[in-house]
């Protein structure tokens, strides 16, 4: 089965069921990601300054008690802008990933269980889609439709659907080939039951891992677009936009450029730490 090279482990049998314990690195990763998710949710209630307010007379002002991360190129509070930026950076990426995984996952399992012509048609279609580099697809759609949050969510979701389809299909094909699915099929069970009861519970682990990886890709793509000025548009700003608007502070090493970039890195590395430290049977290696 050459199409299934992406799979490293599926539903390892005969292992006693035990709760797994996440190693320290994984706990740190989970902590960082959890922290940012909380910030994204409660952001508006805890910001020290209004995101648009000019609070500093200096541009790229230095850090001090009132402005813990200094000020940006217009003299706005960097900390407040990062806190609010979390909503866009994490929210848009999460929404797009969720959509992509929902569409790709459902179709992937359907293809695996139906086999034959349905599988063939879906696989060919997504193979062709995946052969357009993700940044190119994004640029084409944004060139045509302009950039708004719904367009970004939709575009990134469509971009990552073929990848999700591939992984889910490959995982489901592996489980589908196992004898207990054959037994259920010989019993006369329908497609819905096979997907719901026999396949889904046994690919849940790797599939969650895949969700995490895809979220990282989506976040990197979105922040890259924002950095190019083609992502989240002013007056809203995600972390990528913050780096872009403050790029002139680069020569001075201003925190206004560095901190948003560090925030992105902390989330993506955090997710990776969690994924790398999951037990083997959860793993699935995604493609870039």
């Amino acid at each position: 089965m050459s199409a299934d090279q992406t799979i490293t482990a599926v539903a390892a049998p005969a292992l006693p069921r035990r709760r797994f314990r996440l190693p320290l690195a994984g706990i740190i990763g989970a902590g960082v990601v959890g922290f940012w998710v909380v910030i994204a949710i409660i952001g508006p209630y805890i910001v020290p300054h209004d995101v648009g307010a000019l609070v500093d007379d200096d541009l790229f002002g230095r850090m001090r008690w009132a402005l813990p991360l200094g000020s940006d190129y217009l003299g706005r509070d960097v900390l407040s802008r990062i806190i609010i930026g979390a909503r866009y950076s994490i929210g848009v990426a999460a929404a797009a990933t969720f959509l992509a995984v929902f569409m790709g996952g459902t179709l992937g399992m359907l293809a695996a269980v139906s086999r034959g012509a349905v599988d063939m048609a879906l696989s060919r279609f997504f193979d062709a889609l995946i052969s357009i580099p993700s940044k190119m697809s994004a640029l084409v759609v944004i060139a045509a439709l302009g950039s708004s949050i719904p367009v970004l969510v939709g575009t990134v979701a469509v971009i990552y659907t073929p990848g999700a389809f591939r992984i889910w299909r490959a995982l489901a094909v592996n489980v589908n080939a196992l004898d207990f699915v054959e037994v259920a099929r010989a019993r006369g069970e329908g497609t819905g039951y096979l997907i719901r009861e026999e396949i889904l519970p046994n690919i849940a682990g790797p599939v969650l891992t895949d969700f995490g990886l895809r979220f990282v890709f989506a976040m990197l793509l979105l922040s890259g677009l924002s950095f190019l000025g083609l992502g989240v548009q002013p007056p809203n700003a995600d972390w990528g936009s913050l780096v872009r608007e403050n790029i002139n502070g680069l020569a001075d090493g201003a925190l206004a450029v560095v901190m948003p970039a560090v925030a992105i890195a902390s989330v993506t590395i955090g997710v990776n730490l969690v994924i790398d430290n999951l037990p083997g049977r959860w793993s699935s290696t995604g493609e870039h």
């Binding site: 780096v243 680069l250 992105i264 890195a265 990776n272």
Partner: peptide, 23 residues
């Protein structure tokens, strides 16, 4: 490698500028 792959390219680019060109 995990860290580099997980980080946006513009972060590496800006860090490179700060270290090699500015400092």
């Amino acid at each position: 490698t995990t860290s580099i792959v997980a980080v946006p390219e513009f972060l590496i680019a800006t860090l490179a500028v700060i270290v090699f060109a500015v400092r």
